[in-house]
Simulated assay, not measured.
Amino acid sequence: MDHDDARLLLSDMVRVRRMEEKCAELYSASKIRGFLHLYVGEEAVAAGSLRALEADDAVVATYREHAHALLRGVPMTSILAEMFGKEQGCSRGRGGSMHLFDAGRRFYGGNAIVAAGLPLAVGLALADAYQGRNRVTACYFGEGAVAEGAFHESLNMAVLWHLPVLFCCENNLYAMGTALRRELSQTDLTVKAAAYNVPTLAVDGMDVTACRSAAQEAVEHIRRSGGPFFVEFRTYRFRPHSMFDPELYRDKVEVEQWRQRDPIQMFTDRCVAEGLLGPDDVAAIEEATDVEIRDAVAFAEAGTWEDVADLETDLMTPASGGQA
């Protein structure tokens, strides 16, 4: 890792953290409505793993997808406008926080249903395999999805059909309010994937370079062999499941213990200690991020609501050939 690598990874994590903190502030001010699931604490996973992908690869995420959208290249202006419900948003204001989408960047959501993204990822990978395209579809999901039938069906099909899917399990230990140990009898999730003959890795999800290395290894394997790969990123969310969550299911001491392993602070300290980054680099990243957030909020504030006359647009595919 050199200076440019370090600066890029730190910038990615800081941009995500500051955007999420601003979203929490905007939600409290009723600028953002509906559900809001924040990624604070998990930044190393997205920042590290997404750097292993190419522009032609696809990304499928969950309702906690703001980081993935941003680091995939969806402009922060477009993301904030979508959260505000404005038509300048990436989903024209119709999706909100849980349904960010940008087909041009091959970012396919934003899925509100637990495990819903896994079959979608298998379908995208199947299309690439049929067309002979050497692409990877990265599918992000929480450990709660492992208990769903779609998880098992998707891994099984990906192996049987030899599909290029990178299954990225963001294990933050709590499926909404249910602790992993109360949900699954086998808490080593790599064992679940290995049961379907999927190669696996488990990695410290609070270490951005470890996340990047694991994703690079997995992606190289997929491009070489064509089949799937499963990575369990062992991470932790510092905030509640959503803004509505009273967070009665975990002890505050536990949260504070995990905060001592803040991925941004740990990486910053490491880079400064190794001489990869200096205080001026860190300050420049923070200043640039503040400007980006200020511009994004202003863009969203100035955005327009979709005209009522357009509300039925794109609800159904137009009939063709005389058939409904």
Rank of each mutant, 00 (worst) to 15 (best):
161 W>L: 14
158 A>I: 03
244 F>T: 11
156 N>A: 10
167 F>T: 02
166 L>Q: 05
224 R>C: 12
238 F>E: 04
147 A>D: 10
200 T>Q: 04
221 H>L: 13
261 R>P: 00
143 E>M: 09
209 T>A: 14
126 L>E: 04
246 P>A: 12
207 D>G: 02
243 M>Q: 09
140 Y>F: 15
249 Y>I: 12
256 E>G: 01
147 A>W: 01
254 E>G: 06
259 R>L: 12
242 S>H: 07
230 F>H: 02
138 A>V: 01
145 A>V: 10
173 L>Y: 09
138 A>Q: 01
179 A>W: 02
212 R>Y: 13
261 R>D: 08
185 S>E: 11
258 W>R: 09
252 K>F: 15
142 G>T: 08
222 I>R: 02
216 Q>E: 15
234 R>V: 03
237 R>P: 04
235 T>M: 04
197 N>M: 14
173 L>K: 14
231 V>N: 10
172 N>V: 03
181 R>V: 11
254 E>K: 10
213 S>F: 07
253 V>P: 13
219 V>C: 05
256 E>C: 02
204 D>C: 05
244 F>L: 14
174 Y>R: 07
170 E>H: 04
136 V>W: 01
259 R>N: 04
254 E>I: 12
174 Y>M: 01
172 N>H: 03
228 P>E: 09
176 M>I: 15
196 Y>N: 06
